[in-house]
Simulated assay, not measured.
Amino acid sequence: MTIAVTTPTGQVGSRVVRLLIQAGVRPRVLVRDPARLDAGTRGHVDVRQGDLTDAAYVREATAGARTVFWVDPTPHIADDPVGTSARTAAGLADAARAGDVARIVFLSSVGAEKRHGAGHIDGLARIEELFDGTGADVLHLRCAYFFTNLLFELDGLARGVLTTAFRPDAPMPWADPRDIGDVAAARLLNPDWRGRLVQAVHGPEDLTFKQVAEILTGALGRPVRLETVDDATVRRGLLAAGLPPAAVEALVGMTAGTRDLVPEQPRDLVTTTPTPLAAWAYAHLRPALAAHGRP
């Protein structure tokens, strides 16, 4: 069994690699900088060094792999994030059309089902469509809002403020990337699924941002006040930070386009994962916040 994993040092990819190794698989990892792999991992993987934006590299690195776990590496701050996402995935799509790859498990997002109007998530929708047209067996994991997005809020949380442009009382699914990695690894190891499939990963429960602030208050041991802002305020802040206009619209669009979204896949046994936000915040966000600002 040959399984290739992209972004193997990322939040989800690193978890996938670890589980595959523990299952007795020697995964093939596509990585720009092998030095970022931890020392314990390096002896258990086949490294193919290169840049995922290089279609020729992707074709060569995935050739002969029965299954590929694809994570879009496009940063949200890219000048054309939606177009870059689609162009980057084209190399793998070509490999699948040529028969070099039989199965793809793709890390997508809740909101990709809209196809248009969800900012950078539209790029993931383009990738879904691209992979669906290859003739390979394809599974799209449409994931919830990552717990780890809160790590970008350390400045505000240090002041006791959680800021969002989402509606404060609108519930949405939240998930631990570690749990997403568990689902991805299980699907990669299952040889029996066929066709074009979609599976959501919704985390343990839907939460409003008001509830998130309350949970963080308990987990962090300090009051956390929710502050809501509008899209125009977010846009001005991102432009002032020097982000390209297309990147700004892609970021603002992710929130604006999913603000009232009801995910296409319902919450059930298949889509629900176990880790609660309170436990994650206590284990990860609390120490990160304690270290924030230390010299």
Rank of each mutant, 00 (worst) to 15 (best):
178 R>D: 13
224 V>H: 13
159 R>I: 08
163 T>S: 02
236 R>T: 00
161 V>G: 07
144 A>Q: 02
154 L>E: 00
210 K>W: 12
196 R>F: 00
183 V>G: 09
139 L>F: 09
171 P>L: 14
182 D>Q: 05
169 D>I: 08
167 R>H: 15
175 A>F: 03
216 L>Q: 14
201 V>T: 07
221 G>F: 06
212 V>M: 07
177 P>H: 01
153 E>C: 12
182 D>I: 12
148 T>D: 14
222 R>G: 08
159 R>C: 02
185 A>S: 09
186 A>T: 09
145 Y>I: 12
173 P>V: 15
175 A>Y: 06
211 Q>N: 07
178 R>H: 15
187 R>G: 08
208 T>Q: 01
147 F>R: 00
211 Q>T: 14
205 E>V: 13
162 L>W: 12
132 D>C: 02
157 L>K: 13
164 T>F: 05
215 I>E: 07
192 D>C: 03
223 P>H: 12
193 W>C: 07
181 G>Q: 10
230 D>R: 09
229 V>K: 06
141 L>V: 14
236 R>W: 00
187 R>N: 12
138 V>S: 07
150 L>R: 01
221 G>D: 09
193 W>V: 11
172 M>I: 14
155 D>I: 05
179 D>M: 01
197 L>K: 11
199 Q>T: 06
214 E>L: 13
180 I>R: 09
204 P>R: 02
215 I>R: 06
229 V>N: 10
200 A>T: 04
188 L>P: 10
137 D>A: 10
224 V>T: 05
226 L>V: 06
150 L>Q: 04
166 F>I: 10
235 R>F: 03
155 D>N: 14
174 W>L: 11
207 L>A: 00
149 N>V: 07
215 I>F: 03
152 F>E: 08
132 D>K: 02
193 W>L: 08
195 G>Q: 02
179 D>L: 00
212 V>A: 14
137 D>H: 13
194 R>M: 07
230 D>M: 06
190 N>L: 11
203 G>F: 11
169 D>V: 14
160 G>V: 04
160 G>P: 13
212 V>C: 06
177 P>A: 05
192 D>V: 14
151 L>P: 02
212 V>S: 08
200 A>V: 07
154 L>A: 06
221 G>W: 10
217 T>C: 01
199 Q>V: 05
224 V>D: 09
133 G>Y: 00
201 V>D: 05
153 E>H: 15
174 W>S: 06
212 V>N: 12
148 T>A: 15
143 C>K: 04
187 R>L: 10
232 A>C: 06
160 G>F: 13
179 D>A: 03
164 T>N: 11
164 T>A: 11
191 P>I: 00
186 A>H: 06
196 R>V: 04
214 E>A: 15
236 R>K: 11
224 V>W: 01
198 V>M: 02
134 T>D: 01
202 H>G: 05
236 R>G: 00
179 D>N: 01
230 D>H: 13
166 F>K: 05
227 E>T: 14
230 D>P: 10
233 T>V: 12
204 P>F: 00
225 R>E: 15
159 R>A: 09
148 T>G: 03
215 I>K: 03
152 F>H: 15
226 L>D: 13
199 Q>Y: 02
178 R>F: 13
165 A>H: 09
138 V>R: 04
201 V>L: 08
